[in-house]
């Protein structure tokens, strides 16, 4: 057998990391220059937000096999945590944002018993729990959550700063998921996704592994909610717990291909760009055309863009994160 240092796997690893560094670096430079060159900051802010949301959702769905229809709960709780801390407790935004992530983690722990469920049952319970979160916040005293008017963050809005913070959140999220995809935890999660009983009989502590994956999947949307609250300067339950947020996250992740790191990124880029294009050209038929495009994508590429390519070229799996 060849010595460890000269195995073909090492050259595959070199190509993998070179690709990650080149593509990741190019994307970072592009996003960093958006405000500098006066490009559309709002479009790119939401592009980064959806890349982060779809990628984090991929940890839950693509890596762990859970389809949380109530994924928006983490986003909403993060948005309200930042808004309440900034508006009511006079926290600086930069200090409030980590608490949004913590709120997401706490909510993930509260939801953790539902991880005993699987498939559609988990999805439905998750949707119900998101509805409960929304109801609880809606019915909290108006002095805390702002009631039906929501909370306005006043003079704290700073589009460019929040743009770069969103970029930092996206970079941390993608780095975490890239690490996860190659880590032992990632392998344990995927084994659990494919066959939990078999994985447990191979020595994997399935409940613990699932909890870790669930918490990673909960942290980033909560922070995204906080940053978006800062960016838009206003938070209310209608928008922060809107089920369309879950729907878009799922569609973008599935369009790119669950279970890969690049899938949700490419899915989000393709669909957000398509959404923008259709909206500009056909403002009245925007949702209809987007719906047809989504159906066509699922019909013709059921494994998503990246998933379908890797299905045809399995030898590329070693190089494509």
């Amino acid at each position: 057998m060849m010595p460890v240092s000269s195995r073909p796997q090492d050259s595959a690893d070199r190509i993998y990391f070179t690709l990650v560094a080149l593509i990741g670096g190019a994307l970072m430079i592009y996003f960093a220059l958006v405000p500098v060159f006066g490009l559309n900051v709002a479009f790119h802010f939401y592009l980064m937000l959806w890349i982060t949301m779809a990628s984090a959702f991929n940890v839950s769905s693509g890596f762990s096999g859970y389809l949380p229809f109530g994924y928006v709960a983490f986003y909403g709780i993060g948005a309200f945590t930042t808004a309440i801390l900034v508006k009511k407790a006079a926290f600086p935004v930069f200090l409030a944002l980590p608490f949004s992530g913590v709120a997401g983690l706490v909510l993930a722990l509260l939801f953790a018993p539902t991880l005993r469920l699987s498939g559609i049952y988990f999805g439905i319970v998750s949707l119900a729990l998101a509805g409960i979160c929304r109801l609880v916040i809606t019915n909290m005293p108006e002095e805390i959550t702002g009631g039906s008017f929501g909370l306005q963050l006043g003079s704290r809005a700073h589009p460019v700063q929040s743009f770069y913070v969103m970029m930092a959140v996206m970079v941390v999220a993608l780095a975490t998921i890239l690490w996860l995809s190659r880590s032992r935890l990632g392998k344990a999660l995927r084994a659990t996704r494919d066959d939990a009983d078999a994985a447990e009989m191979m020595g994997i502590n399935v409940p613990r592994v699932r909890l870790y994956g669930w918490m990673i999947a909960a942290f980033f949307p909560a922070v995204c909610g906080g940053v978006e609250a800062w960016y838009t300067n206003v938070v209310d339950t209608e928008t922060a717990f809107n089920t369309l947020i879950t729907a878009k996250t799922v569609i973008y992740a599935v369009a790119g291909g669950l279970g890969t790191v690049t899938g949700p990124i490419i899915g989000a880029v393709a669909m957000v760009w398509l959404d923008e294009l259709i909206w500009r050209q056909f403002p009245l038929l925007n949702l209809l055309i987007l719906g047809v495009a989504t159906v066509a994508l699922v019909l013709f590429l059921p494994r998503g863009i990246v998933g379908s390519i890797l299905r045809r070229k399995p030898q590329w799996r070693r190089y494509v994160p």
């Binding site: 392998k187 995927r190 084994a191 066959d195």
Partner: peptide, 19 residues
């Protein structure tokens, strides 16, 4: 057979020795 269907053969073998 209860293999981990969406994992490579190498990764399948690594699962029991992850710890």
């Amino acid at each position: 057979p209860r293999v981990f269907r969406k994992m490579s053969l190498i990764d399948n073998l690594l699962v029991p020795v992850l710890d």
